[in-house]
């Protein structure tokens, strides 16, 4: 395994949860989600040689994934060979707690989808634990600008969630 593949596998191993949840936030359905994840994986793979370590790896991964999600054209789907993903494991039906958890998550997802794409990106970063500085680094704006945008996006999300 060469250095490029090692880096790629490490990025996926450390950030796969974020990548999967991002596709839920931006894709329009299961097929589109799979296509988007394939596009993100391909973009990440192609970006490995360009990564010089000037930014944090998580910042880089976010930047690549967000660019794909924000600029992707649906006409580009299925033009490339499919990257087969393993079956998405169905959550175990193990009682009320799991059902409640799923329902809360679905409610947050539906609210996120009603927010503008760029505000959705800011919210996703914040929900995944990024600081204002990190959000600014990912987007390419100052931490102050990122903070203002995050404040507006959080207000919008709260409105959509009904208080």
């Amino acid at each position: 395994m060469d250095a490029r593949e090692t880096t790629f596998r490490r990025w996926l191993g450390e950030h796969r949860g974020i990548l999967v949840r991002l596709t839920y936030a931006y894709a329009t359905g299961p097929d589109d989600r799979e296509d988007m994840l394939q596009d993100i994986l391909l973009a990440l793979w192609r970006s490995v040689p360009s990564f010089r370590g000037e930014a944090r790896e998580s910042t880089w991964v976010f930047q690549v994934a967000l660019q794909v999600a924000l600029t992707r054209r649906r006409a580009e789907r299925r033009r490339r060979p499919s990257v087969p993903l393993a079956d998405t494991p169905e959550p175990a039906a193990d009682g009320e707690a799991a059902a409640e958890q799923r329902m809360r998550w679905t409610r947050v997802l539906e609210a996120l989808r009603r927010v503008a794409p760029l505000d959705r990106a800011v919210l996703l970063l914040a929900l995944e634990g990024a600081s204002q500085q990190e959000i600014g680094d990912v987007l390419g704006v100052t931490a102050g600008a990122a903070g203002v945008r995050l404040h507006r996006a959080r207000r919008r999300l709260t409105e959509v969630l009904g208080g």
Partner: peptide, 17 residues
């Protein structure tokens, strides 16, 4: 909201096989 969000799908099985 963040807590609920992070409990969503995080895996697609053998993602890095």
């Amino acid at each position: 909201i963040a807590s609920a969000w992070k409990q969503g799908p995080a895996d697609v099985g053998r993602l890095v096989d």
